[in-house]
């Protein structure tokens, strides 16, 4: 499942969508979180539309996260554990931001980067999700803004096509991995399979799926790697040019007589005047 790859310890998750699924972005991210057992009480989402015009909306979100944390701490100190919110107690909140196109409609890039950075540094936030669709970004510097978001993100999921996605992951130690997956999408599930022949994400490591058994080579490969019996025999029978030069052979003199040459087989040295 895709949620196994995205809902991890990494904090800032950027989804770059090239498939025009922006209208379902909040639902998409919400479903990933629900699949990983993140309850609705741990999810905070900014409202969309006109309210994004006001800076107070953004401040309210940060304030809300901090207040819950303070309330929980106070409740724990008082020994009243029932008053705390279970999901936010240990790990913090999952924040789902509006799409980048909607944010840029009302706020400047500098403000958006600043807000993203504040969320990234906040102790009360465990994950931040941002959705960006390049075909909806109409800022003249959209390319740079998207690159800036990629720089801030620790996980970058790129939905390349209906059947292909890539995931760039930056670990806290500095290690970066870029993996590609084939995917199967329906309205209710999002299944991914690594393209390097590995196991499907979220699957048991001891039981490879039937799909991987049938097609050991990547689904996107244009090469036929496997050989059948006849092809193996033909390959073995073929002598390659460099092998031919190594074959031991007797020395031969190849002589081609001229047209005017009067060759006498009985006395081949006639012309030598011995």
């Amino acid at each position: 499942m895709l949620s196994n790859l995205l809902v991890t310890n990494q904090k800032v998750v950027l989804v770059i969508d090239e498939l025009n699924r922006e209208r379902i972005a909040p639902k998409f991210i919400g479903s990933l979180l629900h699949e990983q057992g993140q309850g609705a009480e741990t999810i905070k989402a900014l409202p969309t539309g006109v309210s994004l015009k006001h800076v107070a909306t953004f401040e309210a979100l940060i304030g809300e996260c901090a207040n819950h944390k303070n309330n929980n701490t106070a409740a724990e100190n008082a020994g009243d554990l029932d008053g705390s919110i279970p999901g936010s107690k240990a790990t913090g909140f999952n924040v789902i931001l509006p799409t980048l196109a909607d944010l840029l409609c009302y706020q400047t890039p500098a403000f958006i980067f600043g807000f993203l950075n504040r969320l990234r540094r906040s102790e009360n936030v465990c994950r931040v999700f941002l959705w960006a669709s390049p075909q909806h970004l109409q800022n003249p510097h959209a390319e740079y803004i998207l690159a800036g978001c990629e720089y801030l993100a620790e996980l970058v999921l790129r939905l390349e096509s209906d059947k292909l996605l890539s995931l760039i992951s930056r670990k806290p130690g500095g290690a970066v991995s870029n993996k590609r997956y084939s995917c199967q999408v329906s309205k209710t599930f999002f299944q991914v399979t690594p393209l390097d022949g590995g196991l499907p994400a979220g699957g048991s490591p001891k039981q490879p799926s039937p799909e991987t058994e049938q097609t050991p080579e990547p689904a996107s490969s244009t090469f036929k790697i496997e050989l059948d019996e006849d092809e193996v025999m033909a390959r073995n029978a073929l002598t390659l040019p460099y092998e031919r030069t190594c074959e031991p052979s007797e020395g031969n003199i190849i002589y081609t007589p001229d047209a005017d040459d009067d060759f006498d087989e009985e006395d081949p040295d006639e012309d030598l005047c011995i």
């Binding site: 699924r21 209208r23 379902i24 639902k27 998409f28 919400g30 329906s186 309205k187 599930f189 999002f190």
Partner: peptide, 10 residues
Amino acid sequence: VLEEGNYACE
């Protein structure tokens, strides 16, 4: 758009 699913639209 007939229906908005969790991961795809009909």
